[in-house]
């Protein structure tokens, strides 16, 4: 029995005994399997890491590196959807994904993810360098095995530790150029790492019932609203100085510094509002969740403008 059909059997109720039925899955379904919105964020942060790294990379090599990182992120998404098909079917937010909808069988998602993951790692190693390739392989492993299979269903600290997977792309982009790492990409890693908990816990605050129904031990489900709101503010208090740190260490200029300070102040304000909200989490949590996306995007966008390719954009604008 092939791995593809074995996957369907492992997922019992979701297989629906359709192992012999030809697939109706379209290309769009397979693209959805890769979580394209997550892929775009991964590619953007990797691009920034690649652009601010010292040294240069041929444009085609840079494109190849970003393509491999994007495909690796897509592979991680597909493997996550393979493993989480049972809980995705229960949650409102994820019930329309291709596997719970029955358009792609779990075993097909598994095969797709493994193939893409393997290819992305090997191609990145062959065409760019093996340091970046190793980091990409570790990132995929971390997200699928450490976060999806192990942490997500077993601890309320799941997205704290598991969020590390989303923080690696700028380091991979940096390593693609330099073949090594240094403090600056580690700072970028830390910014995303400490951004992840307030971002996802703000979402979880107004999706608590969804996560509870699926049996996922997100912090609001396990520890309650009050504890979650305190921890959101705590992580935001750690995040904001980290966001400013690249300016303090002299890696960036005044534009980034001002942006980091202003957006950090807004994050803290929103985090405080979440803590002080007297009714069940709704408006303040949604505001924080939405702004946290803008916060991260602005930090990295300004970093790209100021430092990307030796400050090319800044020089062209001057």
């Amino acid at each position: 029995m092939s791995l593809v059909s074995a996957g369907a059997d492992l997922r019992g109720p979701l297989a629906s005994s359709r192992s012999a039925e030809p697939s109706l899955a379209t290309v769009g379904d397979y693209i959805a399997l890769m979580k394209p919105r997550v892929m775009s964020l991964v590619v953007f942060t990797a691009l920034v890491g690649l652009a601010v790294a010292p040294g240069s990379l041929h444009p085609v090599t840079a494109f190849t590196a970003l393509l491999c990182i994007a495909v690796g992120a897509g592979a991680s998404g597909a493997l996550n959807m393979w493993y989480d098909a049972d809980i995705d079917a229960v949650m409102t937010r994820t019930a329309r994904r291709p596997v719970p909808m029955g358009r792609i069988r779990p075993g097909e998602a598994l095969a797709f993810g493994l193939t893409l993951g393997s290819f992305s790692v090997v191609v990145l190693g062959l065409l760019v360098n093996w340091v970046a390739s190793t980091l990409l392989a570790f990132t995929i492993f971390f997200y699928v095995v450490i976060y999806t299979i192990w942490l997500k269903r077993s601890t309320p600290q799941n997205i704290v530790i598991g969020g590390g997977a989303g923080a690696f792309p700028p380091m991979i982009g940096w390593a693609a150029v330099t073949g090594s790492l240094s403090l600056e990409p580690v700072l970028l890693f830390l910014i995303i790492f400490f951004w992840t908990p307030p971002h996802f816990w703000a979402l979880a605050l107004y999706r608590t019932e969804d996560y509870a129904r699926a049996g996922i031990p997100m912090l609001p489900v396990v520890s309650g609203d009050a504890s979650t709101r305190r921890q959101i503010l705590l992580y935001t208090l750690i995040l904001v100085p980290l966001g400013i740190a690249p300016w303090m260490f002299g890696y960036t200029g005044a534009l980034y510094g001002i942006t980091a300070v202003l957006t950090g102040a807004i994050m803290l304000t929103l985090g405080w509002q979440v803590l002080r909200e007297n009714r069940p989490a709704e408006r303040a949590s949604r505001n924080l969740f939405a702004f946290s996306i803008l916060y991260l995007f602005l930090l990295f966008a300004v970093l790209l403008v100021e430092r990307g390719w030796g400050g090319l954009i800044t020089r062209l604008a001057a």
């Binding site: 012999a20 030809p22 697939s23 109706l24 899955a25 379209t26 290309v27 397979y30």
Partner: peptide, 18 residues
Amino acid sequence: GIVLTEAQKRARRSRSLA
């Protein structure tokens, strides 16, 4: 043997092209 419907044929063709 199994005869595919038009929808299945279209889906398979699109995947093959991709």
